[in-house]
């Protein structure tokens, strides 16, 4: 079981225990990883209203962003004006990671691609995969050794 310490520890002991129980049940249902839960919580679209490198993202915000918002109701999309800087997309994930993608001088389609990539990711750190098969139960019929006789 996953042990979760509730934030409200100042409450009487019995009630805090109950909260802990309810929390563990819910977490084990969603099981931390994606499993039907979107991991990208918040997307910040930062742009400049004057700069030439923001031309693409300004077009993106007019054409693609409303439909993107509509398609992803689970996602909080915020636009942010930073003058004199190149535009970027910033994603905040459920596991408290954040990922920043620079989108200067990109076209609308490219920016949409990057936004979708941010949405499709789990927000884990990009590491070289040791294995492409992750399992908790490596063997069903028993691990083979040289001693096994059939």
């Amino acid at each position: 079981m996953i042990r979760v310490r509730p934030a409200s520890l100042h409450k009487p002991f019995s009630s805090s225990f109950n909260i802990a129980v309810s929390f563990t049940v819910r977490v084990s249902a969603s099981k931390m990883a994606l499993r039907g839960v979107w991991q990208l919580k918040k997307l910040i679209v930062s742009y400049c209203d004057w700069g030439g490198s923001s031309r693409g993202i300004r077009a993106f915000m007019e054409t693609e962003l409303p439909t993107f918002k509509e398609k992803n109701p689970q996602l909080e999309v915020v636009t942010e004006l930073i003058r004199g800087q190149h535009p970027h997309l910033k994603g905040f994930y459920k596991n408290k990671n954040e990922r920043v993608v620079c989108v200067k001088n990109l076209t609308t389609e490219d920016i949409l691609l990057h936004a979708t990539r941010l949405r499709n990711a789990l927000g884990r750190k990009v590491v070289k995969l040791k294995t492409r098969h992750v399992t908790k139960h490596p063997s069903v019929q028993g691990t083979w050794t040289t001693d096994v006789k059939f």
């Binding site: 990883a33 995969l129 492409r132 098969h133 992750v134 399992t135 908790k136 139960h137 069903v140």
Partner: peptide, 25 residues
């Protein structure tokens, strides 16, 4: 988890999977 496994082919890769595993294709 159920103690059952399958060998499944996706594209040109084969994976030995059981319930609850995750695979990268």
């Amino acid at each position: 988890y159920e103690p059952v496994f399958a060998v499944v082919q996706i594209g040109s890769h084969q994976f030995k999977v059981s319930n609850g595993d995750s695979i990268f294709t």
